[in-house]
């Protein structure tokens, strides 16, 4: 874990086992809260949200022997800060099953912070159609909301200061072992 070695002020928050437990718990909560699993779409926000959605779907399959659809919801073109950044976020194609009517779309992301990304994701979903409901699942909720949005499923609540940074690594997206840690600048 070269990051921790390089940065002495980094504090480990979750290791691979803790991440696995958190996502399995979220899978259980989704099963409990949603009567018809066939109506669910787990829509990940690229790139780690997509991987987290895939893992939650795998847990649901393992627990309930039921297939849950996954999708990709890219928010770059729905952001409200275009033109203020020197470097643009890379846009990727969104992929959602249509029609969305009567379906529950669960937005999945790694870190939940100001809420602006999720707002953009909801806008993006609405451009595909009108789902019956939208829910939100996140691995880490670090607080500091700027919009009235709250998550339905949380892997870990982690009160932070604004100058701190949450670092998430997943094997499939980062080619590094699963880990979450906190960095102070």
């Amino acid at each position: 874990m070269k990051h921790k070695e390089q940065n002495s002020s980094a504090a480990s928050i979750m290791d691979a086992a803790a991440i696995r437990r958190a996502l399995r718990r979220i899978a259980h909560e989704i099963i409990e809260r949603n009567r018809h699993l066939a109506n669910i779409v787990l829509a990940g926000i690229p790139s780690r949200g997509v991987e987290i959605a895939r893992r939650i779907a795998a847990f649901i399959r393992g627990i309930e022997k039921a297939e849950v659809e996954t999708g990709v919801i890219d928010v770059a073109m729905h952001r409200d800060d275009v033109g203020t950044r020197a470097e643009l976020p890379v846009v990727r194609a969104s992929k959602l099953p249509v029609p969305l009517e009567d379906r529950t779309v669960i937005i999945v992301d790694d870190v939940f912070y100001t809420g602006r990304t999720v707002r953009a994701a909801m806008d993006a979903i609405n451009s595909f159609g009108r789902p019956a409901r939208i829910q939100l699942a996140v691995l880490i909720d670090r607080g500091h909301r700027e919009l009235p949005i709250r998550p339905d499923y949380v892997g870990k609540n982690l009160p932070t200061a604004t100058h701190e940074q949450i670092q998430v690594r997943l094997q499939e997206t980062d080619n590094e072992p699963d880990a979450v840690w906190l960095e102070r600048e």
Binding site: A76, M77, H78, R79, V82, G83, D123, N126, S127, F128
Partner: peptide
Amino acid sequence: REIKKVPAL
């Protein structure tokens, strides 16, 4: 998409 418009610009 049903709504072929995004707010990017």
